[in-house]
């Protein structure tokens, strides 16, 4: 039964995406909405991305220093490992899990409320493809903004590691700098960006799907938001496993 329900839900999701990816009625309206969404979903997420990344960068640095450094280990290992963790997993996958909570629930509750207050019916009655009109700008906006958020996250995480080194004295900024630059691979940055773009699609499309199919009232909107965040998180982790395998081989 669960399998049948899952297949049915997946089918509904595919049908919705088919409606979403259609040519916008008016490009002018689409770009105006996309800009608004870039601000709403992307720019408004910068503070939380910077805040979390800064402290996680600092914590990673402390943990590595305390747990893996030994007289036999080169001093630059802490900086090197901090960089690899930030670039390869934290700033793409973990940051997107956090964004799934912030952005995903926002999208589901916004679209779900529009559904229960008949605003989506109003769009349909006007002859507007409501799925494309509401969802496509969100998907495009977050996919366009996420690389910037990833870069900001890496930068803030690195700054956090530097700050903890400088202000606590657990290691010198010079040792950290050597580690950060040691055998730097540009491809890893690209991997992080590619993964985050895929995750941005999951966050926006899945959250929109849950919001779009809400029926009932505010209670159902709340449930849909929770379900959207749970589904987004699970799908991000699953996609992370596949993409990491594909990109890092």
């Amino acid at each position: 039964m669960i399998l049948v329900d899952s297949i049915k839900t997946f089918g509904e999701y595919i049908l919705l995406m088919k409606r979403v990816f259609s040519i916008p009625e008016k490009w002018r309206v689409f770009f105006r909405q996309m800009l608004q969404e870039m601000y709403q979903l992307g720019v408004n997420s910068i503070p939380i991305v910077l805040l979390i990344s800064f402290f996680i960068g600092a914590v990673i640095c402390i943990q590595l220093k305390l747990n893996i450094e030994s007289p036999w280990m080169p001093k630059m290992v802490v900086g090197y490992s901090t960089r690899e963790i930030l670039i390869l997993e934290f700033s793409s996958s973990i940051m997107c899990l956090i964004l799934a909570g912030k952005v995903g629930s926002n999208i589901t509750s916004e679209i779900g409320t529009m559904r229960v207050t008949q605003q989506i019916d109003a769009l349909e009655i006007m002859g507007v493809n409501s799925a494309s009109f509401l969802i496509l700008p969100k998907v495009s906006a977050l996919m366009a903004m996420i690389p910037m958020l990833v870069i900001f996250s890496i930068a803030a995480g690195t700054a956090g590691a530097f700050a903890i080194g400088k202000f606590t004295g657990i290691m010198t900024p010079e040792d950290l700098m050597v580690g950060l630059q040691y055998e730097f691979q540009q491809w890893y940055i690209w991997c992080s960006v590619i993964k985050s773009v895929a995750f941005a699609f999951i966050i926006t499309s899945v959250s929109s799907f849950y919001g779009y199919r809400v029926s009932g009232g505010s209670l159902e909107v709340g449930k849909a938001s929770t379900n959207a965040v749970v589904s987004c998180s699970a799908l991000i982790l699953f996609a992370d496993m596949i993409l990491t395998q594909l990109l890092m081989q």
């Binding site: 008949q118 605003q119 109003a122 009655i125």
Partner: peptide, 19 residues
């Protein structure tokens, strides 16, 4: 159907204005 709906105006029970 979409084209025909452009000839339709509708007033919903709760107005359904875009907030």
């Amino acid at each position: 159907r979409m084209l025909l709906r452009r000839e339709i105006g509708m007033l919903f029970q709760n107005a359904a204005l875009f907030d």
